[in-house]
């Protein structure tokens, strides 16, 4: 029985995931390209990656997107979850509206934001001029272009955090809160002493999943800036897509993907360690949840 329960995902893993992984690993040590045969070139692709300034920039960008984007999305999502959770009326409509950005197809997200931020016919520029501010070159300045992508990513994916944290809140037990309230604790204290620690498992799951997805950030950048100006908003997945599928340099693209994969695995592990440290400092009231969680630590071992 117990083996049957986890058989399907493991079966999927071996049937569908392992083969592409080996295939990609194999590709990454060749110079295969679409429309050409490949030969074994050892680790040349990897060596080349580390002197490729587009790759390095994309690598740095990807990590910054994850750190900035996920941080912003987590706190906003948590705030929204708490706000909506404390509401009495209109919850359902609000929830629907909050989730809306996640439902819009990527190409349309790209177009909408491209036009919103356009300094000539976009309403944001209109707003700035209306307030007698100088219009901001949202998409054409390297730094601002980067910021714009983080903003759009946050717009689209805060709902993801909201959804996971909100449902997480719904599963918390009542008793500790009532006890604390009886003791006359302030809302602020109740949040830090009870809600936040008890929500940690859900938070970690949400942060980890969102980080993994963020590492693959692709369509928003693809449709809004195309990686520009001058590669300032590139991500690894975008580079991988263009290298592998647009210009057909499969071997090199595969090496990029493997590096991306390794990075995600290493950083996911780091995130877990850091979070566990933080949790160790959380105190008393959350201790119970904490204990339960620590008793079964999330894995750090790379399988």
């Amino acid at each position: 029985m117990k083996h049957l329960l986890i058989a399907p995902p493991l079966l999927f893993f071996f049937a569908i995931s392992v083969i592409p992984l080996l295939f990609t690993l194999g590709l990454s040590v060749t110079n295969t390209s679409i429309g050409g045969s490949g030969s074994f070139i050892g680790l040349n692709n990897y060596a080349q990656l580390f002197s490729d300034q587009f790759f390095l920039r994309g690598f740095l960008n990807t990590i910054l997107y994850v750190v900035l984007g996920v941080t912003a999305q987590y706190w906003l999502g948590l705030g929204l979850a708490l706000l909506v959770n404390s509401m009495v009326h209109g919850k359902r409509l609000i929830r629907l509206l909050i989730l809306l950005p996640m439902m819009i197809p990527p190409l349309i997200v790209g177009f909408v934001w491209q036009t919103l931020l356009d300094s000539r016919y976009g309403p944001v520029a209109g707003l700035f001029t209306g307030l007698h501010l100088k219009p901001v070159p949202w998409l054409t300045d390297p730094t601002l272009g980067f910021v714009s992508i983080v903003i759009v990513d946050t717009w689209q994916w805060t709902p993801f955090m909201f959804l996971l944290l909100f449902t997480g809140l719904r599963t918390l037990p009542k008793e500790p809160f009532e006890a604390a309230r009886v003791d006359g604790a302030s809302s602020w204290r109740i949040f830090w002493d009870h809600t936040f620690p008890m929500l940690l498992p859900a938070s970690i799951a949400a942060i980890l999943l969102r980080s993994i997805e963020s590492f693959k950030l692709f369509d928003i950048v693809f449709f809004i800036t195309g990686g520009g100006p001058g590669g300032a908003t590139n991500t690894l997945t975008l580079l991988g897509y263009f290298t592998s599928l647009r210009s057909g340099n499969l071997g090199y693209g595969a090496a990029m993907s493997i590096i991306l994969l390794l990075t995600v695995v290493v950083l996911a592990t780091l995130i877990l360690i850091v979070v566990r440290r933080l949790m160790a400092r959380a105190d008393k009231a959350g201790q119970q949840a904490l204990d339960q969680f620590l008793a079964e630590p999330l894995p750090v071992k790379v399988a």
Partner: peptide, 16 residues
């Protein structure tokens, strides 16, 4: 296609 992609990447840098 690959020649033009490479050209595009570097020209974009110069444009920026």
């Amino acid at each position: 296609g690959r020649y033009s992609e490479v050209l595009d990447n570097w020209v974009q840098q110069a444009l920026a």
